[in-house]
Amino acid sequence: MGVYVKSKMAAACVRRLGKVGRLVLDSPACRTVKCHALLPRNSLNGPRRAYGTGTEGFTSRPLRNFSTQLRSARVLGCAFLLGGGMGLYQTIKLTFQRHLAEEEEKSAAASGEVKLTLYQYKTCPFCSKVRAFLDFHGFQYEIVEVNPVMRKEIKWSSYRKVPILMVNESIQLNDSSVIISTLKTFLISREKTIPQILECYPEMKSTNDSGKEVTEFNNKYWIMVGGTEEEKLYPEKGSRKEEIKWRKWADDWLVHLISPNVYRTPNEALASFDYIVREGKFSTFEGFFAKYVGAGAMWIISKRLKNRHNLQNDVRLDLYKAANDWVAAVGKNRKFMGGEAPNLADLAVFGVLRVMEGLEAFDDMMENTKIKPWYKRMEKATHHKEPQQ
C-alpha cells in the first residue's frame, strides 16, 4: 500500500478519534461546572450526609459514585484525544515521507539518476521481460539474484515473488507488467511521480479455482497517457490495442509454452536445470539437489502442464505455431510490432523467449520457424547490455 493511501487512512482515524474524544469530554459527566445537577438532592436534616457535610476523610456514596464516573469519563476522553494525537503524528510523518520521496524522485529524474535495483531469478521469463525493457531504454540498474529455495534476499518484502524493482531504494514495484507500464509512463509523463503513477495499478487479491489466494493488478497493460502524449506514443490507429493484446498474449499463453518445451524429455530437463543452477544462486547442496531431483520432478510436472494448457502431444508444435503467429502479427512491412523500434509487446515476447537460449528448444524454434530475423533485430535493439552486479 502506498504512503499516500496510508496517510489518508491515518487522517481518517485522527478525525474519528478526535471527534469521539471531544464528545466524551463534552458529555455531562465531564462538565464539572454542572456537577451539582448530577448529584442527588439530599436534605441536610436527613440521616444521610449531603455534599460537603461529611467529616474529614469521609465521602458519601453518591459522591464516590460520581467521582468514579467523572474520572472514568475523563480518562476515556483523554485516551481518545491521545489516540487522535498519535494519529495526527503518523499522518504528518507519512505525508512528509511521501513528499520527501517525491522530491527525491523528481530531483533524481531531473538529473537522470534514477537508482534501480532488480530482484530476480535470471532464468525467469518475467524477470527477463523487465531486463529487456530496461536494456532497451538504457536504464542503469543493479541486479540482486534471489536464492529460489530460501529467498532470503526478499525476506523484507511481503510480496514474495520476483521480479521486484526498487526505485531509489524507497519505492517498490511488483509484477513484471506493472513495472514496465509504470516506468514507461514515467518516461513519457515526467510531471507525474512514480508513486502517483503506481496508484493507477491497484493491487487486487482473489481466490483462484484451486482455493489459493492470488494477487492481480488492474490496468497493468495500460500506459497512463492521453492527448498529445498518446498520439505521439501510438501514432497508428489501433496500435495501442494491438500492443496490449500481444503483451497479454505473452503473459497468458507464450510463457506457458516454456516449461513443457524445455523439460520435454529427461535429457532436456537435465540440461535445463544444469543451466538454471549455473546461472542461478544456489549453494552446492541446493544446486546438486535442484539439478538431479528438480530435473526429474519438472519432467513429470511438464506433462501435467501440457494437459492443463491443452497442448499437443508434441509440444514443439505449439511453440512453433506461437512463434509464427507472432511473426505474422508483426507483418512483412515492419521491423518490429512497434514499427521502426520495438514497442512493449516486442520487448515482452523477446524477454520470454530469451530464457530458452542455449537449450534444445530454442535451437529447434530458430530452425523451424520464421522468427529468427526478428529475434536478431531485437538482440541488436536491446544490445544485451550487462547491468551492474
Rank of each mutant, 00 (worst) to 15 (best):
G2T: 15
V3C: 10
Y4V: 08
S7L: 12
M9I: 11
R16D: 08
R16I: 12
L17A: 03
L17M: 03
V20P: 08
V20W: 02
L23E: 11
L25Q: 07
L25T: 02
P28R: 12
K34N: 13
A37P: 07
A37N: 15
L38R: 06
L39H: 00
L39M: 13
A50E: 05
T53M: 09
T55M: 08
E56T: 00
R64Q: 05
T68C: 10
Q69G: 09
R71A: 12
R74I: 14
V75P: 02
L76A: 11
L76W: 10
C78F: 09
A79M: 08
L82I: 02
M86W: 03
M86D: 00
M86K: 01
G87W: 08
L94H: 06
R98A: 10
A101W: 15
K106M: 02
A110P: 07
K115N: 14
T123Q: 04
C124Y: 00
F126W: 01
K129N: 04
R131L: 02
I143W: 01
V146T: 04
N147K: 05
P148Y: 10
I154K: 11
Y159S: 12
R160D: 01
R160T: 14
I171P: 05
L173I: 03
L173Y: 00
N174D: 14
D175C: 01
K184Q: 14
E191A: 03
P195C: 10
E203S: 14
T207I: 13
K220A: 00
W222M: 03
M224C: 02
L233V: 08
Y234L: 09
P235R: 10
K237T: 15
I244R: 11
K248F: 01
D251E: 07
I258R: 06
P260Q: 00
P260H: 06
S272T: 15
F273R: 08
F273L: 13
D274P: 03
D274F: 15
Y275A: 06
V277M: 04
E279T: 14
K281T: 06
F282N: 04
S283M: 02
E286L: 04
G287H: 08
A290G: 01
V293C: 02
K303C: 02
R308K: 14
N310S: 12
L311P: 04
N313D: 15
N313W: 06
D314Q: 09
R316G: 00
K321E: 09
N333P: 04
R334C: 02
K335T: 10
G339W: 04
E340T: 12
E340Q: 15
E340R: 14
V355T: 02
V355H: 06
A361N: 09
M365H: 11
Y375V: 06
E379V: 02
E379W: 08
H383R: 15
H383V: 05
E386Y: 04
